[in-house]
Structure formats: C-alpha cells, structure tokens
Design a protein around this nucleic acid. Sequence first.
DNA 1: TCACGTCAAGCAGAT
DNA 2: ATCTGCTTGACGTGA
Length: 297
Amino acid sequence: MKIGYPCINRSLSCKGNRTFRLRSYSDERLQQTIQNNLNCLLHILRFNLKYGMLFFRISSDIIPFASHPVCTFPWQKHFRHQFKKIGQFIMKNDMRISMHPDQFIVINTPREEVFQRSVAEIAYHAEVLDLMGLDTTAKIQLHVGGVYTDKSKSIVRFIDRYRSLDASLKRRLVIENDEKSYDIQDCLLIHKKIKIPVLFDYFHHTLLNNHESFCDVLESCKKTWAEKDGIPMVDYSSQKPHTTTGAHAEHLDKSDFKVFLRNSRPYDFDLMLEIKDKERSVIKALTILKSDPRLIS
DNA sequence: TCACGTCAAGCAGAT
DNA sequence: ATCTGCTTGACGTGA
C-alpha cells in the first residue's frame, strides 16, 4: 500500500498548481507558469519521497489552459526534457501517480460541445503522463457524470462515448463512484460492458451505497483492475465534524482511519487521502500503519 | 500589504 | 431563477 494526497503540499511554499486568469494569457506567462509548476512538482515529489509518501495526484492546473483554444504554445515539445526527468524520478522511486480532471469534464453529457471539450481535457491529462513516460498504472480518474433525468440512458451514453475514445486515452481512464448519482454498483455495471477499472471512493460510498459489505465492494473493485492497470486505487476521506454536507475533514480522523484499515484487510491498494491538511494527514497515516502492524495487509 | 470579488468550463440539489 | 459545492484554492484589482 502506497499512501498519498492530492495536488497541493501545504508544508512547502513551492506550489505546482500556479495559474493565471484567461485574460492574462500570453505565451510568455504560460511558459513561466509551467516552468514554475514543473520545478515545484519535482520539489514536492522529493519531499514526498523523504517521508515515504509514494502516491501523488498531479494537479490539473500544471499546464494552465492546456486544452483551451487560447493555448497554442507547443508546451509538450518545449518542456519535454523536464517531463522526462520528472517521470524518471517517479519510476526510479516506484511512485504511483493519478490525475483527476475537474467537474467540467463530463463525457456522458448530451451536449456535443461539452463532450468535445472534455475529450480535449482528457487528452491533455494523458499527454502529461505520456510525456513523463509513465506506464498504464498512472491513471486519470473520472466520475460517470450527469443523470439528466434518465440514468440508464445516461449510462449507455457513457459507454458509447467511452468506446469512441482513442486507445491512448482509454488505457488511462478509470471511473470513481460519486456521492449523489452513480454508486459503486453503477460503476461495476459499466465495467462489465467496457472493462474500465473502478476506483473506490470510501467517503462517497458512505454517503451513497446499497448497504454492501465493505469487503465485497473491495473484492469487486479489485477484479476490475487488470495487470497492466496496477493494484487498485482507493480514495479515502471522512466527514468534516459538525457538518452534514459531505465536506471533507480538515484533519485525519485517526479512529475512523483505523477502522477503515482494519475492515479493508487483506486487500491491497494504493490510498489517496482526500483530507484538507494534505501531507500532514499522510504522515499521520504512515505512523499509524507502522505502529500497528496488524493493520498492514 | 491585504481584503475580497472573481475565476473557462457542468451538473445536481437546495434556496 | 439563482446559488452552492465539487479535489477548492488562488488570481489580481483596488484600497
């Protein structure tokens, strides 16, 4: 089990997700920002390695406006050596990488222009991972999307749209259960049709489920990850205390986390902690794992 | 230096 | 009809 956090490191001043406003766009500004973001990404990965955090989600902002028509600068070519260097660092240290395009990426949308923009954005994410030379265990995670008042039709649309994608994108994509529309059974159903791996989000599952046993869910999800996909990825968070909104906790809830670990035995997966204090929680989680060997599968 | 309105993009659910 | 949350944070203007 590798443990990690998404996108932002709160201990370092170096941020790998700097961006700017669209109206401030210039090729020069873009280059400066990308240069900063790539430098910081390597800093963050070095920091992570030092603490034994071997899983990381790269921010979608690493190349601002990458899929926007305004961006015509050939950043792929210009920064290719730096991408390669980062990729080599990742591979040399056996790190796991994911990316998570934001909420605007909806491949089951009925609107063709939204779909086209989504494909362009997914292609950009895949390009980043490809430029780093990472194998297909580096994943891009998506939600199934909208319901549009007819869930079964929307699932069919997801499947059809997915099938139409280029193989270079499909090999990176995984789907994740969400907290209000598509639960883990929906994801597993989609997997049956198109073999896309299913990323289990524990917190979303606590908010939307069919009272399945935790082990059954882990077993079912595990089977959706083929050899080439690597071991399953799992997202973990807990409820922010005193709220009922599904907001993510500020700090790792140690007792909830221990229950999670104990109940997830003997399954092995790479775990992303979606907790607001980011790497602090991962350090706590690693300490818990070390101090309680029976939690380790 | 700092407060705060706003930021490319979609959707669902609440108000 | 409008606002809020989502993996929310950060940009950038004006005081």
